[in-house]
């Protein structure tokens, strides 16, 4: 028997009328809580990610900034993004955000993917790419509100953070959480992580960060990777973290009910043609006109 998690609540390009195995439905939702205010930008998590997942990105170039690599790639599933911000008092703040897949409750990638089973969502909320089913079309990139998935140029498959679903399956926390030396990344049930965040936010507010708050955007149904931000009122400060992420209306139109309706309409045209033929009969050349032509030919032959 193959190893199956049997807790898949959503599967790309699969009707909810034919659900994937999901008997194990009592699972608690999990979340990774990234406390940006505690992160020191050591990139230990980047290294741990590369180690555990056993992927080695190319050694890039120094672009004159701390971000390295400068962007997520098919082989760098998480990157630290460094932003310099001057607060109202003119003091420098270094806003360091660990970027990567947010594991949305309503994932735009899964909604967009045309390949059955190439993207799945587990009962604990993790959104995972099943790369052997991936066809490399890049629709997930088009659907993602956070610009996370990347197509690998070597094998033309899409990759992103799996939230270490393999580690979670055996009761371990993600490798970035395990490695973080400051405890800026925590992991647990989503409920617990919200409580932890509450405490942190309260603490930050007492220390003068009046706008501190939790980033768990509801436009995508909430996420299973959340941030504690000092400036929760302005998430864009953190290297363009979207303030109100949601699946783009264009993607919703593209992937909405219009497609089954268009499919029915096409079936209607096909059936309509068939029934037109059998009810009205073929449009034959009339015998009358054929006789006219034959008469002309006879006339000409005389």
């Amino acid at each position: 028997m193959s190893m199956q998690s049997q807790d898949i609540i959503r599967r790309s390009a699969t009707s909810s009328l034919t659900p994937p195995p999901q008997v194990r439905d009592h699972k608690l939702e999990v979340a990774k809580l990234i406390d940006v205010t505690v992160c020191i930008g050591c990139k230990g998590c980047q290294v741990a990610c590369s180690e555990w997942n056993d992927i080695r990105d190319e050694v890039g170039h120094n672009h004159g900034i701390y971000d390295n690599p400068v962007d997520l790639t098919a082989k760098s599933w998480t990157v630290m993004r460094f932003a310099e911000h001057q607060d109202e008092g003119g003091r420098l703040q270094w806003l360091i955000r660990k970027d990567g897949c947010m594991h949305c409750a309503d994932p735009g990638c899964l909604k967009s993917c045309p390949a059955p089973g190439a993207i799945i969502q587990y009962a604990n909320g993790v959104v995972d790419f099943q790369s052997e089913h991936c066809i490399g079309c890049g629709y997930c990139v088009t659907g993602c509100p956070f610009n996370v998935p990347r197509i690998n140029k070597d094998d033309h498959k899409a990759y992103k953070c799996s939230l270490c679903s393999d580690r979670l399956a055996i009761g371990q926390e993600p490798s970035c959480v395990k490695t973080c030396p400051t405890g800026a990344i925590q992991f647990g049930t989503k409920e617990d992580m919200k409580l932890v965040a509450d405490d942190r936010v309260k603490d930050l507010k007492e220390r003068g960060f009046a706008n501190a708050g939790l980033y768990d955007p509801q436009g995508v149904g909430g996420t299973h990777v959340m941030y504690v931000l000092h400036h929760a009122d302005r998430p864009e400060l953190y290297s363009g973290l979207p303030a109100n992420p949601a699946i783009s209306p264009l993607v919703s139109i593209w992937k909405g009910v219009t497609k089954p309706l268009a499919t029915l309409a096409l079936a209607g045209v096909a059936l309509g043609s068939l029934f037109h033929y059998v009810t009205k009969g073929p449009n034959e050349v009339s015998r009358e006109i054929e006789e006219e032509i034959e008469a002309e030919d006879k006339e000409a032959a005389k």
Partner: peptide, 16 residues
């Protein structure tokens, strides 16, 4: 990305 999304909608609609 906005052009790509628009392209996806147009390609699907005009294709149908």
């Amino acid at each position: 990305i906005t052009l790509v999304r628009l392209g996806a909608v147009v390609h699907a609609a005009a294709g149908a």
